[in-house]
Amino acid sequence: MVGLLGGLLAGIVLAQGPATSVVRNWAFTLQKDGRTQGRFKGGVATPVGGLRAFDVEDFHVDTFRADGELDLTAESPACRVYLTNDSFIVTSPGALKVVQAEGRFELSGEGFYWDQGAQRLVISNRVKTLLAIPLPGGDRSK
């Protein structure tokens, strides 16, 4: 469960000192229903308003599908991570880059809101995407 995420982050923070401490070079794995949902790491994490939100620098996450295969890899130089009851939300006015492991798309933009629980990502400015489109006359059986 996402409690592991909260617990890990909280544990990391508490292990370093008071809840308002800054944590550096952290990493943790988010598990839900016995499977890995995401692997997170970052540079500096600063708790914001308790242990449910963190301002994170050099944010990196790998998310995984239900079959365990890598799905998305995303990075943001600076963002805020909110822990929800069963997942997480990442938001920032800054940059985001996402690569889909199978090559279906790659995207970047500035200003984003990523609700992993709702599987919804909104990018507000300067969106650039590379989307895989079947070529005319190409193999359509795949």
Binding site: L72, V99, E102, G103, R104, E106, L107, G109, Q116, Q119, R120, L121, V122, I123, S124, N125, R126, V127, K128, T129, L130, L131, A132, I133, P134, L135, G138, D139, K142
Partner: peptide
């Protein structure tokens, strides 16, 4: 843009002011 897209597909660069993805 590392070139990891499927070889049999065209790469379609799409630019816009705003976008929403249903992941």
């Amino acid at each position: 843009m590392a070139g990891s897209l499927l070889a049999q597909d065209a790469r379609a660069p799409i630019e816009s002011d705003w976008a929403e993805m249903d992941l």
